[in-house]
Design a protein around this nucleic acid. Structure first.
Lengths: 144, 144
DNA sequence: TATCATTTTGAGACAGCTTATCAATTTCAA
DNA sequence: TTGAAATTGATAAGCTGTCTCAAAATGATA
């Protein structure tokens, strides 16, 4: 439902306003679908939305997901040959443990790491907006 | 020189032996070039080796770098639309502070963060091979 | 509400990176 | 040295994502 993501819709509208962009039916549709996911590929969303709007183009999905990235609602992550768009609002942050054997993804949070990141940023005069932390390796099953 | 990377060559031969693969002139050539780098793309290596062997095919480079991944000598990482092959034997990776205003990139290392990453991985049964940490924000200049 | 400059869309063409194909060549165990 | 098996080089093909452009939608303004 459109009403369940008021805050994000507000953020999108603010971004659109600042950049002379327009709110379209497609952008609303894609935003609501996107916010229900934790992370999704453009291709997956294309198929998922085919029922709701059979004429929604793949290019529009790409364009819109990239727009969400600009607006700070999504974050693009390259995995294998594909790009996954992470829902930033779904969690405070989204760090990943990725098994290079079976491609399993485990999410984790670690406040201490976050704190140290802030520290590093401050030391370098930076103010962090978002971050990406991915640990690649083998899960216990694939190690054998 | 071929002799400077005895250990890695040994590891490659071992892998080849286990999988009924053969040691070729191209594989030796590519291994030695690869081990001199910290990380490189297939395309970059293609151009770099053009002088040494003008007929070395791009496909062979891809195949061989992927072979190195299987052998544990390299690790593929996807950046944007390209794949970088990291030299696993090379220690010390850089993490990045990226300014979304001017695109300036600052490299840093933080042992405490590394240690905590190991801790998280162990808790989840993972063995880390590599990682990627990127902090996005504004540098002091762009903040104003 | 009607107007209309501007933005967005959809469909497909296009581009960049990587893998598959296959005949010719090379390797290496016997 | 021989020959089965693996590898190579050249290029076609595949996949993901972006660009193009005419048609449609948006929204500021009257």
């Amino acid at each position: 439902m459109a009403n369940t993501h008021v805050k994000e819709m507000q953020a999108l509208k603010e971004h659109l306003g600042k950049h002379q962009l327009k709110l379209t039916r497609q952008r609303e549709l894609i935003l609501n679908a996107f916010l229900r996911q934790e992370h999704i590929t453009a291709e997956a969303m294309y198929h998922q939305l085919a029922k709701a709007d059979p004429h929604l183009g793949l290019a529009t999905i790409y364009r819109t997901l990239n727009l969400f990235c600009d607006a700070g609602l999504a974050q693009a992550r390259h995995f294998g040959s594909q790009t996954k768009y992470d829902n930033v609002s779904h969690k405070g942050h989204h760090d990943h443990l990725i098994c290079t054997g079976c491609e399993k993804i485990v999410e984790f949070e670690n406040e201490e790491i976050e704190r140290l990141q802030e520290e590093v940023a401050t030391q370098n005069g930076f103010t962090i907006k978002t971050h990406r932390l991915e640990l690649y390796g083998l899960c216990s099953r694939c190690r054998h």
